[in-house]
Design a protein around this nucleic acid. Sequence first.
DNA 1: TAGATTGTTAATCGATTAACAATC
DNA 2: TAGATTGTTAATCGATTAACAATC
Lengths: 221, 221
Amino acid sequence: MDEKEISQAVISRLPRYYRYLGELKFEGVERISSQELSELMKVTASQIRQDFNNFGGFGQQGYGYNVEYLYQEIGKILGLDKKHNLIIIGAGNLGQALANYMNFERRGFIIRGLFDCNSRLHGTIIRDIEVQPMEKIKDFVKENDIDIAVLTIPKASAVDVAEQLVQYGIRAIWNFAHVDLNVPEGIQVENVHLSDSLMRLSYNINRYDSELAKKNSAENA
Amino acid sequence: MDEKEISQAVISRLPRYYRYLGELKFEGVERISSQELSELMKVTASQIRQDFNNFGGFGQQGYGYNVEYLYQEIGKILGLDKKHNLIIIGAGNLGQALANYMNFERRGFIIRGLFDCNSRLHGTIIRDIEVQPMEKIKDFVKENDIDIAVLTIPKASAVDVAEQLVQYGIRAIWNFAHVDLNVPEGIQVENVHLSDSLMRLSYNINRYDSELAKKNSAENA
DNA sequence: TAGATTGTTAATCGATTAACAATC
DNA sequence: TAGATTGTTAATCGATTAACAATC
């Protein structure tokens, strides 16, 4: 009953473990110790063991971890053994790019519908999917068992659209709009704020420059 | 000399502050207290004050913070007062979407070149920029003072291309390829791993479901 | 001056790392 | 059995929150 809540720090690391294990599996590696994995991934072996043990013991003393098994188990923890039906709201450049990106399907995320408020896009077909007007979302969500909505629309309309999606019964929103959505408890939101990411990059360039300048002036003093 | 290093946790929050302050400024709000901002942004006032004070005193006791001034200062910290020249490597759907996205230019990130290994794309023009073959990157970087490269290519070639870019003198890489790059000290990398993000969303949907199931079975016990 | 609110120090909380006993 | 390596507890480190003196 009193489940120890897994911290978001741990969860954020799981996809990276999954990626490395997938590659090891692909390379035919059968087992790996936390020590070896730690060298590969440049994190501490201690953190790896702690992270995995949040979900129970996946390893074996004196042996290490079975790559195939661990890969499967992390996949299950991430819910990748389940299928998810998505719709994309906003069939602009980014929406189309995501619709065209095949790799998500491989992980069980299947794009079922595309919607846009721009009538000139209606009827456009992207990967066998026709762009439909926004008015069709409501029925489409109900009839096609959609659980995830991808928001690739400008921030001006994103908050309203998100609210509607929740009413239509959507379970989760993958939000690319540069605005914080306000959704009720139990609706999952994952933000991808590209401009935030670019600003962090900019900060780090800038910081490196000024530290360099400081170091140089110190040498000349 | 002994600069207190600013933690990445703080830096990650700066773009969000910047966004909120930009909106407040746009709405004509002149001053704001940490208390008011904390209610708006749903973080503690304490954290806001701590964060800002990493960079010096931006506020005034008894008054709060001047929105316009604070917005400018955070912009400067993020390096948004400086121009950056970018190139995009990989003119597929995602590369084109980013090239078409105007908002980055507003913040001083100017896309100068587009490159792709697919010869069928060469000569295609996106927002006045012609897609060029990969062989042209080297000279282009030197002649156009490029500091940021956006990597929107498949992971198979990403590591090699990144290595080359570093040799050509690039300063920073905005990496959309699903692989960890290995770059020397001083080269900034910011990863946007979309599939990792989607997996986190998947985890949270899954977790919510199983918690609900647990709660229900507990009630029936 | 009195009230408000910052800047900053101290206390708490959580996450990471180290250490080692358990065990394959 | 001996060696290796996990699972787990304890120690450390860092980040967040609370509290309050400084000051506008």
